[in-house]
């Protein structure tokens, strides 16, 4: 009698394991479906072209103007600024940590990066408002410190752990023989790094940058707190902007359920979802190609 009950138990457990295994797929599909369910209704009031390409985001005027171009450009500007800071800094730091730093120092540096990764975004946003924004305001003599530039600096810091750890993995994965071969030919350690190692690590480093972009593009709280949230097409880095993420976070609380505004915010969510999907897919392909080599 014991054996059949054990068989049955194992059968049920293994079914449960399989269901959990596909749970991630189910959740991704559910996210897409439930964004779509609400978001697609935006097309009742706006055409796709004027939603994506419209110059004005006045969600509560009558009639509501629901063009997200300023938001897209706001996100792109903040992201571009952040990446311009974080990618060179992150790759340089990854090289230092992986190749130059003595062992003890390496452990310390790596834990610092881990601490940075762990700091909640709202805490960085808080420090951004209280420390960074007033500082930038006085240094650049701006009317307000709540600008795209402040957002870029905050986001650069949030992208750095991703860029550093994945680049470092890619650098460490370069076969040791390549390096030893170059050193044996009389190249200095520096020449070896920048002629040989960077070559082997390149796909991984590009993937690291892509994942950093993904992280930055989707980041919400810190960017909402420091960028000033003006939904206008940005003219310069030193003006307030509003990103896609901040728009959802700031406005969903006030949008009446079932209103055009409410649907539009879900549609913004779809845009974010699709972009992050594309970025992650590309990064994954790059990483896998790097591994296969």
């Amino acid at each position: 009698m014991k054996l059949p009950s054990r068989r049955l138990r194992e059968f049920l457990i293994e079914k449960l394991i399989f269901l959990s295994g596909i749970a991630s797929v189910v959740f991704v599909v559910l996210i897409f479906i439930f964004l779509l369910r609400e978001g697609v209704s935006v097309l009742k009031t706006t055409s796709l072209g004027s939603f994506l390409g419209g110059h004005f985001w006045y969600p509560i005027s009558t009639p509501a103007k629901l063009g997200i171009l300023p938001l897209i450009l706001g996100s792109l500007m903040v992201t571009a600024g952040a990446i311009a800071i974080a990618v060179p800094l992150g790759i340089a730091a990854a090289f230092y940590i992986a190749e130059v730093a003595p062992k003890r120092l390496r452990t310390v540096l790596k834990s610092c990066v881990e601490v940075l990764a762990a700091i909640p975004s709202v805490v960085l946003g808080f420090l951004g408002i209280t420390v960074l924004v007033p500082f930038l305001k006085s240094v650049f003599n701006l009317p307000t410190g709540l600008t795209a530039f402040s957002g870029s600096i905050m986001l650069a810091f949030m992208a750095l752990p991703t860029i550093i750890t994945i680049s470092e993995d890619a650098i460490n994965a370069v076969p040791r023989e390549y390096k030893e071969g170059a050193l044996a030919l009389g190249a200095t350690h520096w020449q070896t790094l920048f002629r040989v190692v960077i070559h082997g690590a390149l796909p991984g480093i590009i993937a690291a940058a892509m994942l950093g972009i993904g992280r930055v593009f989707g980041e919400t709280m810190a960017v909402m707190m420091v960028t000033g949230n003006a939904a206008v097409i940005p003219q310069s880095l030193f003006e307030p902007v509003r990103t896609l993420t901040a728009t959802i976070a700031a406005e969903m609380g006030e949008a009446a359920k079932g209103s055009a505004h409410y649907f539009a915010l879900f549609a913004v969510g779809i845009v974010l979802f699709v972009i992050s999907f594309a970025i992650n897919l590309t990064a994954d392909i790059l990483l896998n190609r790097g591994k296969k080599k």
């Binding site: 959740f27 439930f34 964004l35 975004s121 959802i248 879900f266 974010l272 992650n280 897919l281 994954d284």
Partner: peptide
């Protein structure tokens, strides 16, 4: 692929999803 995407989706999109579902 789903796991990678789940890890990469913006946190505010999770908020929308939670609200909707």
């Amino acid at each position: 692929l789903a796991i990678i995407n789940l890890a990469g989706v913006s946190s505010v999109v999770f908020g929308l999803f939670g609200l909707s579902l």
